[in-house]
């Protein structure tokens, strides 16, 4: 079989599109303070932020998996009134400016928030200005990617596979574990990856809801933003770290999960 070629116009536009994506990276690399890089990157601010970023993005991904997968399954399979409203609600964080999402979280889960206040009174827990706040903010903004991935994958899954599992003695949990989830595996993995990437780069909701304190809530994007005010070299260095980590994760995992399909 011969491979179909794309029309020339598509190729040209694609090249322009590729250039469009490369420009910011070129800008970053051109200004990078290469010789000072080791010193800049080993500073305490950067190391603290890196640690927090990894913990909080993985935490947000885990929280998204815990809540987002069931939500995607519900949206795909359960029939209930107001499902489209619910779907709209879930997708809202994709549209809202993250700063607004963060402010809304503050209104809801803050110390004086609608839900945050009773929580605070009962448990003494204050979500803002803590790592939990960072995780919650990132999860709110990132989870929709997982929910959509799961929903559309489950929707495209022939329900007869689950039916077959049932006739073979599998209860609902085993069917979910041994058939549904493995069969949507690639979409699930893609969704988790996007969720992680979005959480890793999350800025607006985090700074609004969780604040910014080195070693406690200051993730890499926050550190970049603060450094940008005064110390551009550090800002660029941190950005390079983010680019390196996300690119290698995205490339490595993408190849592993999607090549076989």
């Amino acid at each position: 079989m011969s491979r179909r070629r794309n029309p020339l116009g598509v190729v040209i536009l694609a090249v322009i599109g590729l250039f469009f994506f490369t420009i910011p990276l070129i800008g970053l690399l051109a200004r990078a303070p290469w010789s000072d890089l080791p010193d800049l990157l080993s500073s305490e601010i950067v190391l603290d932020a890196l640690r927090l970023s990894l913990i909080s993005s993985l935490g947000a991904t885990a929280l998204s998996a815990l809540l987002g997968i069931p939500l995607g399954l519900m949206l795909a399979r359960a029939e209930f009134p107001g499902r489209s409203v619910l779907r709209g609600l879930v997708l809202l964080p994709l549209v809202l400016p993250p700063v607004v999402a963060g402010t809304a979280l503050l209104f809801a889960l803050g110390r004086r928030g609608v839900i945050g206040e009773p929580i605070n009174e009962v448990t003494g827990l204050v979500l803002p200005f803590s790592i939990w706040g960072v995780i919650i903010a990132a999860a709110l903004v990132a989870m929709p990617f997982l929910v959509i991935s799961v929903e559309s994958a489950v929707r495209n899954l022939d329900p007869r596979f689950e039916g077959a599992a049932a006739t073979l003695g599998a209860g609902k949990w085993r069917t979910l574990r041994a058939v549904t989830l493995p069969m949507i595996g690639p979409s699930l993995a893609a969704g988790l990856l996007l969720t992680w990437a979005r959480a890793f780069g999350e800025f607006g909701a985090t700074i609004t809801f969780a604040g910014n304190l080195q070693g406690r809530t200051q993730t890499l994007p926050l550190a970049v933003f603060v450094a940008l005010e005064q110390d551009r070299d550090t800002a660029i260095a941190i950005s390079l770290v983010m680019v390196a980590i996300s690119l290698s994760v995205l490339i490595l995992l993408r190849d592993r999960w999607w090549r076989a399909r």
Binding site: T208, G211, L213, L222
Partner: peptide, 11 residues
């Protein structure tokens, strides 16, 4: 003993 260093005065 601060809990946050906000990026600007508005936030």
């Amino acid at each position: 003993a601060i809990d946050t260093s906000e990026p600007d005065v508005r936030s």
